[in-house]
Design a protein around this nucleic acid. Structure first.
Lengths: 195, 195
DNA sequence: TGTACATCAGTGAACGCGCGTTCACTGATGTAC
DNA sequence: TGTACATCAGTGAACGCGCGTTCACTGATGTAC
């Protein structure tokens, strides 16, 4: 009883959409290729390339969806690191370290997030429109800003912190700086190296 | 008098190599595509794709050559900004600003430099092996480090400065932060925004 | 409860594209005798 | 000084690949009467 033609409708109710996103996340977390392909993803899920187009208008839209999930995951990991460190300044440092480590562990996803996630004007966008990761960064900056700092100063502090960890992450991703945990700590908390 | 077959040997003595590099730089400075293609470059220079392979073993080697030139150019612009600002701390700030502006003005070249230029371990490589841009960064850090700082602390300071400006550059390139001159200054010199 | 039919998520084949790279070649240049 | 020849920088055509996307279709599912 050979089944030449596979039965269609293996997924119901947008379940294939979920599967595409889940496998997409998985691939993008594991690989370090320049980009995730529509055909590649379809192959991985076990479906025709065209099936993807039932759920996403085009490749860019699919990428944006994966990037959004990735951004949420990054925010979660940062929040977790913050809590585990007991919050406060130590928590802030820990969340920065989590950011860099996330980038190193998932280079392709990290780049995807930066290139495809919704752009946010950190300095002017209202809180409602910012993704969790950014809102989180801002809140931390506000809590740690010197007393009497105005809103603009807080936002600038947040941006400086972001630029610092982001730059370190990118330099390590591009192999310009060794991806060394001790080095991450040293750069982020500003203390000199012990060696 | 139609000339069907173009005369070969239009370039002499590695002149085509120079032309390829020059036009490659030009293209890579102007465009913002993900990558420069062998065929694209050959087309631009007015030569068969295969002619490129007389001078470069493969695409990666060609890219590395362009990246190296780009890195030198970046270093020159930084040095120029440093001198124009009168050196010292102001010069250091100015060279950081020049770094970010270079990235914004030449996104593709900047990315190419980061991905294809020779990797350098900023913290451990001997000066002879470091490109001018990195040596320059180190010298600045040394000059500005607090008195009594040891070598490791100076190198860490250099890395922190690099991460700061590099992160800002990347965030602006990816559209996560507006590419605003006032913002660059504010982030780099650490003062609060005036607005 | 049974039947007719619209919906819609999938298939399978193909298009057109540009890429990096290979192969065999051509014809001008420089050199040795 | 003239001729024979090796060198070598280019040409032109083709290969094989994977991509995003189109088109026409099929067949199972859910719904209305």
């Amino acid at each position: 009883m050979p089944s030449k033609a596979k039965p269609s409708r293996a997924y119901h109710h947008g379940a294939l959409r979920d599967a595409l996103l889940a496998r997409g996340m998985h691939l993008v977390e594991q690989e370090n290729a320049p980009s995730l392909g529509v055909r590649e993803l379809a192959r991985d899920v076990g479906v025709t390339p065209m099936a993807v187009y039932r759920h996403f208008p085009d490749k860019a839209d699919l990428m944006a969806a994966v990037a959004k999930e990735g951004l949420d995951k990054l925010a979660q990991e940062q929040a977790h690191a913050f809590d585990e460190a007991g919050g406060g300044f130590e928590g802030f440092i820990a969340s920065g370290r989590a950011y860099v480590r996330f980038a190193i562990r998932h280079p392709m996803l990290f780049r995807l997030i930066l290139s495809h996630a919704p752009k946010v004007d950190l300095l002017h966008a209202p809180p409602k429109q910012t993704p969790a990761a950014i809102r989180y960064l801002r809140e931390n900056a506000r809590a740690l800003a010197p007393k009497g700092a105005d809103a603009a100063q807080v936002k600038l502090l947040a941006l400086q912190a972001w630029a610092q960890v982001h730059g370190l992450a990118m330099l390590m991703l591009d192999g310009q700086v060794p991806a060394d945990d001790a080095l991450i700590d040293a750069v982020i908390n500003g203390q000199g190296l012990r060696s």
